[in-house]
């Protein structure tokens, strides 16, 4: 009969023996699993928005929805355009009806629940449009809070989501100060703008950049000193959104105003 001492001995030996082949396995980080020839080193994707050029046509939103298969009529979107109207009485009104997918069809500012504010032209002090998208933060709070590591930062700085691993807890949605994340209506996992990663890694532009008729949106590589976008960010006066959260956002804005939220 086997003694307790022997039993423990054999158990330990067995476990140790099993550990040897297990050690040969490597747990691969999702960021490492790159397919194809694209080399992410030497690349840091950044985005430049020239708000002075934006007219709020919404073609970028439309293109994004089609390119990235976000159901067209669903009230969520990877990118959107905001309209800000400042009146002479100092009030700020802002809206983004359906994310400006169809542009801004009326001069009235949407107040939600079917209400609108009618603003007379002579009351307006200034008005402008601001396109929004994921900031692909250098210090992304969404990646920090994901309990399973389903959202991660690639070496070239883009934050991606693994649709096969996301549990749909919504913690990343809560953690994003920019409100860019949402649940995909079809896949039921977290979703957001990824700078059209499938396009930019093949040398193409993002869908929204290609769709913008006014050149208000540009994508570039911050690590390339000859990149025109990198040059503008380095040499001109640009701003970022919600710097106070310490997320180090990588979408830069020309003509940002203090009213922008």
């Amino acid at each position: 009969m086997i003694t307790r001492r022997d039993f423990l001995k054999y158990t330990l030996k067995g476990a140790a023996g099993l550990a040897v082949p297990v050690a040969a396995l490597e747990i691969a980080a999702p960021g490492k699993l790159f397919a194809g020839k694209y080399d992410p080193s030497g690349v840091r994707w950044v985005f430049l928005v020239d708000t002075l050029k934006c007219v709020g046509c919404g073609l970028c939103v439309k293109a994004c929805k089609l390119e990235n298969e976000i159901p067209y009529d669903a009230n969520v979107t990877r990118t959107w355009v905001e309209r800000y109207v400042l009146t002479k009485d100092g009030r700020v009104s802002a809206d983004t009806p359906k994310g400006a997918r169809d542009g801004f069809l009326t001069e009235k500012v949407e107040l939600g629940q079917g209400k609108y504010r009618d603003i007379k032209k002579e009351e307006i002090e200034k008005a402008f449009f601001v396109p929004k998208l994921c900031n692909q933060c250098q210090n992304p709070p969404c990646v920090q809070v994901c309990p399973v590591g389903a959202t991660y930062q690639t070496p070239d700085g883009v934050v991606l989501i693994d649709r096969k691993w996301c549990i749909g807890c919504g913690y990343c949605i809560m953690a994003c100060p920019y409100g860019v994340r949402f649940f995909h209506p079809v896949y039921h996992v977290a979703e957001k703008c990824n700078f059209c990663y499938h396009r930019i890694t093949k040398g193409m532009n993002t869908a929204c950049v290609d769709a913008c008729p006014f050149g208000a949106r540009k994508i570039g590589n911050m690590k390339d000193p000859n990149d025109p976008v990198a040059k503008i960010i380095a040499s001109e006066r640009v701003g970022v959104l919600k710097e106070e959260y310490g997320t180090k956002p990588q979408v830069y804005y020309i003509g940002l105003s203090k009213e922008v939220r």
Binding site: N75, W80, D95, G99, G112
Partner: peptide, 16 residues
């Protein structure tokens, strides 16, 4: 969209 069934928005809220 998830959340739309029980959320009512008022004034300026981000679309998502």
């Amino acid at each position: 969209v998830h959340g739309e069934a029980w959320t009512l928005k008022e004034l300026f809220v981000y679309p998502n």
